[in-house]
Each structure stands twice: as structure tokens, then as C-alpha cells.
Design a protein around this nucleic acid. Structure first.
Lengths: 185, 185
DNA sequence: GTCTATACTCCGATAGAC
DNA sequence: GTCTATCGGAGTATAGAC
């Protein structure tokens, strides 16, 4: 039946709704019964698919990582040093434009010393980007590439926080251009 | 009795322990029974003093704001424009050195769309600092003072996140100096 | 101590795909 | 006619606010 292509299956509905709720109200503060209700499925189905609530979170996080990887890859695969820098600066915008809820959830988990903190540490996926950026600053003969990399990463962490607050991401383009302008010669 | 001066009263014990637990494990994830146990008081005392769990959080937040206000004031009262900038850059360090747990809790709450988000919005206390910084950049003839203010605030938000992760705050001095050096002529 | 919410279990019934 | 996905609801155990 053609509707297969248009109707989300129930497992995906659960994942979608759970991500939405977890990222907005927090994992602990979201009950499985609410997820079931909003996803219009029986509560038991959640446990059939994901074993337990934590399993649901795990699958959400794994899916999220997979979805942001292509954005990271565009930086990793860039050859020109200056373009590496400019692309890194656009990363927060692009990731949040596409995967806002996931990224919000990820920050949420990171900001708490929960048992999940180590399981779902997304920092490791950013290491290649960090190294690439460091190399770019070296290539461009910055006086202290390591410090400049740290500096820019710190700035982009702050930018990410701001972007998550925004309803209209376009409002952020001015500051993103401003940041980029500081690295253009 | 002299011990009054040395022994914390029970209400303050509760506040201290609750702040510690809330900031490390999250508000939702901390039970009143655990707070009582760690503070070595009966659980009922929490409700006698604070009505309910939310009342406890409210008092913690109000106390925290009062404690950070002096740090903000040192910026507000600074006359020299360049010193305003340098002092603002040191704010995250100073606040976290003194009130790490409170500031961590505050970020935690901010990162969730909880009902508390609006009640405990600390942004409003930073507005005078923002305006002061904006004025400083104007005085120093920056091309775009408003954007530069936004830029620096974004950077400092990112710095704050990093500081919260650190066990040894001294490790951050290098990057703080580096940020400051960009604004020294 | 009380009462409610919540994670999780179990199972009989149903409907559709093959 | 069987298999798979799902429903719906009864039920348990436990934790947590008060």
C-alpha cells in the first residue's frame, strides 16, 4: 500500500514524540505514559520496542549522532584552511537548523551529572573537527593555534546556546557573519 | 550558646545540601528524602520551612542571585571603558569560583523548558552589565559596539560552560588572559 | 504514614499481510 | 491459517511528595 511511504510506523512515532518531549521537558520529567498518549500508541508498545525507558533514550541519541555526522564531515573533508574555519563557524547553525531537538537534549544531558553523561558524550565526535581546526590555524600561521582553537570552540559553544533559545534562526546570521569576518583577511 | 556561630542551623543545612544535590543531579532527579538524609534532618522539616519542594528551589535561587550581585556591581561601578571590558571577561571565572553550584543549577534550569524557566530567569540581572559593556565599546569607538557586545557575551557564555566542567579553575586562566589580550591595545 | 505517579509486566483480542 | 504488530487494560512494585 502506498500509505507505507507516508505514514510513519509506530516505532518512529514513538522516537519522534519522545525526542520532542525529552528535549523540552527533560528525560526524567517525561513519563512513558505521556509519550504513549501523544504518539497515539499503547504504552506497552514502548517497552516492546525499546525494552525500557533508557533504551528509548539510547536509540534517540544514536539516531541523532548519525544525523549530525554529515555536517561534521563537510568540515573534515574541506581542504582549504580558511574555509575550514568559516565552515566550523557555521556548524552550530546548520546542526541546530536540522537537529535542534536532538542537540538540545544532548546539552541537557551534558549539563547534568547523570549516569548518561558518559554514555552519551558527544564531545568525542567533535574531536576530529577540533583537530582539523587546529591544523587550519597552524597552516595559516596563527601565533598560538592551540589557544585560538580553544577560543573559537568556546565561542561556538556559546553560540550554540544562543541558537537553541532562538525561535527564528535567521536572527543569528548577523552574528555568525560577524564571527566569520574576524577570520577573513 | 557559642555553637550558634559555628553550627549551621537546620534550615541553612537544608539549603546547602539541596543546592549541592540539585546542581549535580538536577532538581527533578533529587528526592526530598535524600536531601533530608544528607542534611541530617527529618524530611518533614523541609516542608515546614519551605512549604514544598518548589519553595526550596525558589529560596535557593533567590539566595544565589543575592550572592552574585556584588560581582556584577564591580563591573557596573567601573569608570574606565577598557577596564570594564577586562572585568567583564573575568566575571564567569569569579562567579564560578565563588558560586559554582548555584550557577550550574541556573544553567541547568535554563536549558529546560520547565515551568521554572521564567520564574528564575537570571538574564535580567545581566542586562546592566550588557549595557555597560555596550557603552564601553562605544566609548572606545568600536565600529559596531552592539555586535561586539553580543559577540563577547556569546563567548563568555561558552566560557562559563567550560568553567563549570573544570575541576581546577586555574586551568582556565590561560584562555581568559588570551581573551583579554584581544581587547588590550 | 498516606496517596499518587510511574516504570514495567502480562495477556487475551484484533486486524492485516502473506 | 499463521504470523506479526498492535491494542487495551488489569496489575505490580516502588519511589517520591507531602
Amino acid at each position: 500500500l502506498i500509505t507505507h511511504f507516508f505514514t510513519m510506523n509506530k516505532k518512529d512515532s514513538i522516537l519522534k514524540i519522545a525526542l520532542e518531549l525529552f528535549s523540552n521537558q527533560g528525560y526524567e520529567n517525561t513519563s512513558t505514559s505521556l509519550i504513549a498518549k501523544k504518539a497515539a500508541v499503547s504504552e506497552g508498545l514502548i517497552f516492546r520496542h525499546f525494552t525500557n525507558k533508557e533504551g528509548l533514550l539510547t536509540e534517540i541519541m544514536n539516531e541523532g549522532i548519525i544525523k549530525i555526522q554529515p555536517f561534521l564531515d563537510t568540515v573534515i573533508n574541506e581542504k582549504d584552511a580558511e574555509k575550514v574555519i568559516l565552515k566550523v563557524i557555521e556548524l552550530p547553525y546548520k546542526i541546530i537548523l536540522s537537529e535542534k531537538e536532538f542537540w538540545k537534549l544532548q546539552i541537557n544531558i551534558k549539563s547534568q551529572n547523570s549516569k548518561f553523561k558518559k554514555d552519551f558524550d558527544t564531545n568525542k565526535y567533535l574531536i576530529p573537527v577540533y583537530l582539523k581546526l587546529n591544523q587550519a590555524f597552524s597552516d595559516l600561521k596563527f601565533e598560538n593555534p592551540e589557544l585560538e582553537t580553544q577560543y573559537l570552540f568556546t565561542l561556538l559553544n556559546g553560540l550554540t546556546l544562543s541558537l537553541i533559545e532562538l525561535e527564528n534562526l535567521n536572527d543569528a546570521k548577523v552574528i555568525i557573519n560577524y564571527i566569520q569576518s574576524k577570520y577573513k583577511k
